[in-house]
Write a protein that binds this DNA or RNA. Structure first.
Length: 226
DNA sequence: GCGACAG
DNA sequence: ATCTTGTCGC
């Protein structure tokens, strides 16, 4: 409610931008990211999944709040809104964030850490949806994506919880994590107020018996059942 | 110019 | 993201 003061005042201006302006804004915002750990005691973790309905006309954000440790769901919200922007690779956050903010506004729980379905800084301009959302909420965030957007990596060891660095040139922008033995790895990167190592640690700590970590997995499941 | 391209 | 059945395997 009052944990994300920027929401109410400026919710009407990141969107409605032409691609060129959006890209310029991304560079500015990326410069404001805190790339080190800046999080307090973690009691609640939110999982976020944003998707689309009606052929893209409606944006749907699902948020599940889980206890930590324990990873038991304690609150969940689904928000739907008319979609404002088209899908452009690299500008996904502009399309997804408005609905996510609406969902967070309806949350009663205080959230300490946010895990988003999508990338954090593993993005061409270091502003994937998890990073962008982190700035808006002013909360520590990390992204867990199912597909690569940018960066290069070597083979990922087969064992559960093993990983390989995701590199963009000399910069380590995340890790490619084998969340379960025998499944395609996921792409983990920090968003705001988190280091790459901590993003990896939290992603692993939230693993259950499935491919996706519990927060994102439960948000996914909540979103995909009507 | 030719691919690549989160959700 | 979404369109979609069965099928192999723990």
């Amino acid at each position: 409610m009052t944990q994300h003061p920027r929401t109410r005042e400026t919710a009407l201006h990141d969107w409605d931008l032409a691609p060129k302006e959006a890209i310029a804004l991304q560079r500015t915002l990326a410069g404001r990211l805190i790339r080190e750990d800046a999080l307090g005691e973690v009691k609640h973790i939110a999982g976020v999944d944003i998707g689309f309905e009606d052929g893209g006309d409606t944006t749907r954000a699902a948020v599940v709040v889980l206890s930590w440790p324990g990873l038991a769901p304690i609150e969940q919200v689904v928000a739907r809104q008319p979609t404002r922007m088209p899908y452009v690779p690299g500008l996904l956050s502009f399309r997804e964030i408005p609905a996510a903010l609406a969902a967070f506004e309806r949350l009663d729980s205080r959230v300490d850490l946010v895990m988003v379905d999508g990338h954090g800084i593993a993005h061409p301009r270091r502003l994937g949806v998890a990073a962008h959302l982190g700035l808006w909420l002013d909360l520590p965030t990390l992204g867990v994506a199912k597909k690569r957007l940018t960066g290069r990596h070597g083979e990922v060891p087969e064992g559960r919880a093993e990983s390989t660095d995701l590199m963009d040139g000399d910069e380590r922008i995340g890790v490619v994590l084998r969340s379960r033995a025998g499944v395609k790895p996921v792409f983990v990167s920090p968003g705001h107020r988190l280091s790459v190592d901590s993003a990896r640690t939290w992603a692993v700590a939230c693993l259950g018996r499935y491919k996706l970590p519990e927060p994102t997995r439960l948000a996914d499941r909540l979103a995909s059942r009507r």
